[in-house]
Amino acid sequence: MDFGTLIAGILTLAIFTFLYRDNPIYRAAESLLIGVSIGYVLVITWTNTLMDLLFHPLFRRGDWPLVIPLLLGAMMFGRFYRRTGWLSRFPMAVLIGSGAGVAIPAMLDARTLRQISATVTPLFAGSAWADVSTIIVLAGVITTLSYFYFSREHRGALGFSSKTGTYFLMLFFGTTFGYTVMSRMSTFIGRVEFLLTDFLRLTG
């Protein structure tokens, strides 16, 4: 067994000790994980972004307009001192403004209008079963939306609609739970496979 597998196996078992209860071995492994993960993000951000998008073009090729994002980035560190904290609002303005600007058309078009358009589709275009599905989807979207409409008391027709929406939501949550169980089990199975095959060498 190579040294890397030995370390990976020991650390895997250290994390699994949490299943009994919180303990110093788990906490030490967890602390190491947090530190290493942040260190990894730091290195990748530095090498993959700041070097090739900022420092190389600025200092090697003399792309001087990049001084502005460099200054904005540096202003971000103003947050660490009370007196200079306000400086970080400028880079924050860039981040928030950019996000909001591109989000408006995306949210309206891709997330809302296209989903509404996909809900309202013509009937009698395929089989009878396809029509039933279309009607169920339409009913599901309308009743679920009515469940989230809180400007009126849920009584009468709205009450019936929102209650029906609850059943659609439960179908969604139930299906999602099933798939989430699958995901979590897959991850656990992956770790068991590592322990049995690479670490303990019990299976081929």
Binding site: A100, M107, G140
Partner: peptide
């Protein structure tokens, strides 16, 4: 793909409208 998806779609439309409103308020 149908009843479960329809509930998720309604949630998605709600989130879309919420994000749209928040973005407009920011701008």
């Amino acid at each position: 793909s149908n009843p479960s998806m329809s509930a998720r779609r309604a949630i998605l439309i709600g989130i879309g409208l919420g994000s749209l409103t928040t973005s407009l308020r920011v701008l």
